[in-house]
Design a protein around this nucleic acid. Sequence first.
DNA 1: AGCTCAACCTGGCTGC
DNA 2: TGCAGCCAGGTTGAGC
Length: 278
Amino acid sequence: MPELPEVEVTRLGIAPHLIGRKISAVKVIDGRLRWPVPRNLPKILQDQKVHSIERRGKYLLMALDTGYLLLHLGMTGTLRVLPSSDLLKPHDRVTFEFGKLSLRLHDPRKFGAVLWHPNTKGTIDKNALLQKLGTEPFAPEFAGELGGRILYERSRRRSIAVKQFLLAGQAVVGVGNIYCSESLFEAKIHPAKAAGKLTRPECIRLANAVRFILQNAIEAGGSSLKDFVNSEGNPGYFMVQTKAYDRKDQPCKVCKIPIKQIVQGQRSTYFCPQCQKR
DNA sequence: AGCTCAACCTGGCTGC
DNA sequence: TGCAGCCAGGTTGAGC
């Protein structure tokens, strides 16, 4: 379930094992992902050292000697560090070898991405995929009431429902379908309300809710970090307890009214019709 | 420019 | 048990 918290927990889980190490080999088992894995990627990455692993939105950026390895987990991707002696499993798509350890991308639905961005001289921010992303929810620019101001300003004259506005990631990144419902519940805002009709106080509540929900999820996932170097362990994160998402017809945890499910932009949204006003 | 919707791909669950 | 149909955590790009 890779929304921002899961990607961040993955980053925290794999980084300590890989930083400072050299890629000894790369094997592309099935490169037909969201975009084709570059054919020459194994040759490019060979012998390059990992300097850092950063995150931008739901992308992981691995800084190497001559550029960045971009990783995206799509809908079903997981990245795990395991002993390289472990056998490949079905749906393992790419394996990065670091001597006795392997970093493996496992992705049944193949919506993930493994891409190469050459050059380390500050050009990564201009990458076409990263450039259009909104503000990071934990960046100083989004702290306190600044986040509310960003949401307010970017949503003016937008007729789109706030659920879809938030999910699109143009204003703030990292809020996927689950945490979108959760954030709107937390902020007590109706998901179908037009983004352009949000008041300033609502935008501040929403910004606070987004940070709160994402931070809680990171902390919950962080407790399972040890699983990242365990060949028999779980992916390293799990579904946190939700108050709205996937709770159709179950009583709202605040007012007991049944949670409603609607479809917006081909995706399910869950909300409390009593607590979340338009 | 903004909005809607189809598409990418596979597995798992539901219901007949 | 078998199978058709539907649903799923993300994101782009075509068409209006």
